[in-house]
Design a protein around this nucleic acid. Structure first.
Lengths: 114, 114
DNA sequence: GGAGAATGATACGGAACCGAAACAAACCTG
DNA sequence: CAGGTTTGTTTCGGTTCCGTATCATTCTCC
């Protein structure tokens, strides 16, 4: 990064991108869902329910529910761990990759207009 | 802005700030609530329910509910328009200013770490 | 002043989410 | 192999949010 965003630039960026999210047709993700999704896609696997809950400092049902709803949207998928069948491994999907690519582009594009 | 954020930088910024939002104690705002809040604070008044609904392209009850919930949190307040008593003018609050100052600082600070 | 338009709030039924607790399945350990 | 631990899901009661439709108040304009 060349230099730190000013508070005014930061708020305008936040505003414009959130507004774009409201305007598009896809359902809005909650802050927690977005955190789960980005963690899964940006950090190194494997990702388990327990690990995500610890990372976000939330309870496990929060992660289960987030995976349910984002799974319905096709943004992530689940697979049992063959090594330890108690674990669930959260997997990336093509749709999830595309979703986040679009988001990254949108943020970058918005940052340019400031 | 010196130059456009890359998609990778954008997603990392989004991730880190969302994670910080999940971690702190204040209740998370929905995407729509955040959009209303930032619109009220960044754009020129007056702000009416109808105007905000048009801006966000959502129905009026969405705005009414967002103002209800953020009003409970003290982030905005409402006042009847004396000139046209059908209108409700959305007002900024000290708490709202502080909330967004903290958000702007957080985003700026996070942008520095990339 | 009365009819219709405009504005914001409310009612309604349905869906999603919350935290806490209980639960089922798989593992571990003595 | 039996008891306890770990992991993820489900259940529970309660809250919030959704979109549509309706309502109450205020204004406009003839």
């Amino acid at each position: 990064m060349p230099h730190r965003l000013t508070p005014a630039q930061s708020m305008k960026l936040w505003h414009d991108v959130h507004l774009a999210q409201v305007h598009d047709d896809e359902p809005d993700l909650s802050v927690r869902q977005m955190s789960v999704l980005l963690t899964v896609y940006l950090e190194a696997p494997p990702h388990t329910v327990r690990g995500l809950a610890a990372k976000l400092k939330v309870t496990k049902p929060v992660i289960t529910r987030a995976l349910d709803s984002m799974g319905k949207l096709g943004l992530v998928s689940r697979r049992r761990d063959d090594k330890d069948k108690r674990n669930v491994l959260v997997q990336r999907t093509v749709k999830g990759v595309l979703y986040l690519e679009r988001l990254g582009d949108l943020i970058g594009q918005t940052s340019e207009t400031m």
